[in-house]
Amino acid sequence: MALSSNFWIWIAAILTLAIYSFLYKDNPFYKFAEYLLVGISIGYGISVYWHNTIITKVFNPLVYDKNFLVLIPLLLGLLMFSRFFKNVAYLSRIPIAFVVGAGTGLSVPSSFEFLFKQVYATMPTKLDIGIIIIVIGVISTLIYFFFSLEHKGFVGRVSRVGITFIMVAFGAAFGYTIMARVSLFIGRIQFLLSDWLGIIK
């Protein structure tokens, strides 16, 4: 195994190092990589969009399936361009209103399902110390999110317990995630040492 002779591997390796140089400080290499990534990813995004949306979701249904329903989003999409003209700019509110309405409408039932699932999962089907702690934890955390009561007296004390639970949870989640994040770096190191430099195999 030796240094890679593949032109593309070299590009990937140099770009990788350019991003890491940001850890030292902002510098021309990082800037180059950053602007390149933003530029290429938009170019890529537009191409994917052209392929997945314009062709598959608008052109094909319109031309082959004679599905004229897609004219509605097409029109709504065109209304977004009213932003370019000051006197009709307000028209762009219509597609936004549509999109937000659909989004909130969809989120209501899914919030419900989530609510039910969480309560269902918390139900004490068997009695042990863990279940008792979970019930106490859920209730005290919920009390912490009480907004219409001042957190004083009993409510205050329970919400303190809630904060304690939240802090333990954050500490645990933080510690638990480190392994996954270190793995990401290991992945890049393997690429650099093995695919590019060929030091390890």
């Binding site: 309560v119 139900m123 004490p124 009695l127 019930v135 219409s148 009561l149």
Partner: peptide, 27 residues
């Protein structure tokens, strides 16, 4: 916001009720 808090009370009541029933039933 007040309505959200009222719903929290309902959820907590369900949890406490579930706990009591489980204690009386399984315990």
């Amino acid at each position: 916001i007040a309505a959200e808090d009222f719903l929290k009370v309902i959820i907590m009541s369900i949890l406490v009720l579930g706990f009591l029933l489980s204690f009386l039933g399984s315990g």
